[in-house]
Each structure stands twice: as C-alpha cells, then as structure tokens.
Amino acid sequence: NRLGIIYEIQGMKAVVLTSEGEFLIIRRRKDMKVGQQVSFENEDIYNV
C-alpha cells in the first residue's frame, strides 16, 4: 500500500500528494475528500 493526501478531485480521478513529494493521479473512490489521507495500490495509479 502507498499513502497520499488528496489534493484535488476531477471526475473519476483524484490527484494525491505522496510523502515523497510526488503528485499522482489515482482512481477515485466515492468516500474520498480533499485533504484526506488515503492508501492506494500501484494498480490504482493512472499512467500519464
């Protein structure tokens, strides 16, 4: 599992900021809110 803070939500995608200072786009889940810490898997990351 990886951890990140939700920075922005766009439709079915969420932008998270990881503890390494990396911004990633992941698959959104219904319970996500901006500012929330979430765990996610590598499979949830969109390749940009």
Rank of each mutant, 00 (worst) to 15 (best):
R28G: 14
R2S: 07
Q10D: 14
Y46T: 12
R27N: 13
Q37Y: 04
V15G: 04
K13I: 07
G21V: 02
R28K: 15
D44C: 05
D44S: 03
I26E: 00
D44T: 02
T18L: 05
A14N: 01
V15L: 12
G35N: 07
E8C: 03
R27F: 11
M32A: 07
F40K: 01
F23D: 01
E20R: 08
I9S: 01
Q37F: 09
Y7K: 10
L17Q: 09
K13S: 09
K13Y: 13
I9E: 01
I9M: 11
G21S: 07
N42S: 14
Q36W: 07
Q10A: 07
E41V: 06
A14W: 04
Q10C: 12
E20D: 11
K30F: 14
G21M: 03
E8D: 09
I6D: 00
E43S: 09
I9Q: 01
V16M: 03
K13F: 11
E20H: 14
R28H: 15
M12P: 14
D31V: 03
E20G: 06
E22I: 12
V16C: 03
V38I: 04
A14P: 00
V16F: 01
L3C: 05
G35E: 02
V34F: 04
D44N: 03
I9L: 08
N42A: 12
D44G: 02
I25Y: 06
N42I: 14
Q10N: 13
R28A: 07
I5C: 08
Q36N: 11
M32N: 02
I5Q: 04
I9T: 04
K30H: 15
I9P: 00
Q36G: 04
S39D: 06
D44P: 10
I5F: 12
R2A: 07
G35M: 05
S19P: 10
M32Y: 15
I5G: 01
R28Q: 08
N42H: 10
R27G: 07
I25R: 06
D31S: 08
E43T: 04
R2H: 04
M12Q: 14
N42D: 11
L3N: 13
V34S: 02
T18S: 09
L17K: 06
D44L: 05
F23M: 14
Q37K: 10
Q10S: 15
S39V: 14
V38H: 04
N1W: 08
V15Y: 15
V15P: 00
G11N: 10
K13W: 13
S39Q: 09
A14F: 06
I6H: 00
V16Y: 00
I45P: 03
V48K: 02
G35K: 03
M12V: 11
K13V: 07
Q37A: 11
V15F: 07
E8H: 09
I6Y: 00
V16K: 00
D31Y: 11
I45A: 06
K30I: 12
F23L: 10
G4M: 02
G4W: 02
I26R: 01
Q36D: 10
E8K: 07
E22H: 09
R27A: 11
I45E: 05
V34C: 14
F40T: 04
K30L: 10
G21N: 07
G11D: 11
G4I: 01
R29F: 07
F40Y: 12
Y7P: 00
R29V: 05
V48A: 08
Y46F: 15
D31M: 08
A14T: 06
I45R: 02
R2W: 12
A14R: 00
I25N: 03
Q10Y: 09
R2P: 02
V48S: 15
K13Q: 06
S19L: 10
V48H: 13
G21I: 02
G35D: 05
I45H: 04
Q37V: 14
E22Q: 10
I45D: 04
D44M: 03
M12D: 15
I26V: 05
L24F: 12
V38Y: 09
V38G: 00
M12L: 04
F40A: 03
T18C: 06
I26L: 04
E43I: 05
Q10T: 05
G4Q: 01
Q36C: 13
Q36R: 06
I25C: 15
I26C: 01
I9N: 01
R27M: 08
R29N: 12
L24N: 02
R28T: 15
N1Y: 13
I9R: 01
Y46E: 07
G35S: 03
E22P: 02
L3H: 10
V38C: 09
V48Y: 02
I45G: 06
F40L: 08
R2G: 08
S39K: 11
V16R: 00
G21L: 05
E43P: 04
V38Q: 02
R2E: 04
K13M: 07
I6W: 00
M12R: 14
D31C: 13
K33P: 01
T18H: 02
R29C: 10
M12S: 10
R28V: 15
E8I: 05
V34Q: 05
V48T: 12
M12W: 14
L3M: 09
Y46L: 15
I6P: 00
F23I: 11
N47G: 10
L3P: 03
G35F: 05
V34D: 02
L17S: 03
G11V: 05
R28N: 09
G4D: 01
E20Y: 05
D31H: 13
M32K: 02
F40H: 01
A14M: 12
M32G: 03
Y7W: 15
Q10I: 15
V15H: 10
S19M: 14
L24H: 05
Q37R: 08
I25V: 11
Q37C: 07
D44Y: 06
V15K: 12
D31G: 14
G35I: 00
Q36F: 12
R27Q: 08
K30Y: 06
I25A: 09
Y46W: 11
N42G: 04
K30M: 14
V48G: 09
Q36Y: 09
V34P: 04
Y7V: 12
Y46N: 05
S39A: 10
K30W: 07
Q10H: 14
V16N: 00
V38N: 00
A14H: 01
G4H: 01
N1V: 14
F23E: 07
Q37S: 10
F40M: 11
R27T: 11
I26S: 00
Y46C: 12
M12Y: 14
A14G: 01
E22W: 10
N47L: 05
E8N: 08
E43V: 04
V15M: 14
S39M: 08
E43F: 03
V38A: 06
I26Y: 01
N42Q: 14
V15W: 11
A14S: 04
K33Q: 14
R2Y: 12
E41H: 11
Y46D: 11
D44V: 02
F23W: 15
L24Q: 05
E8L: 10
I25E: 06
N47E: 15
I45C: 10
K33N: 10
K30S: 13
R29P: 08
G11H: 04
N42Y: 10
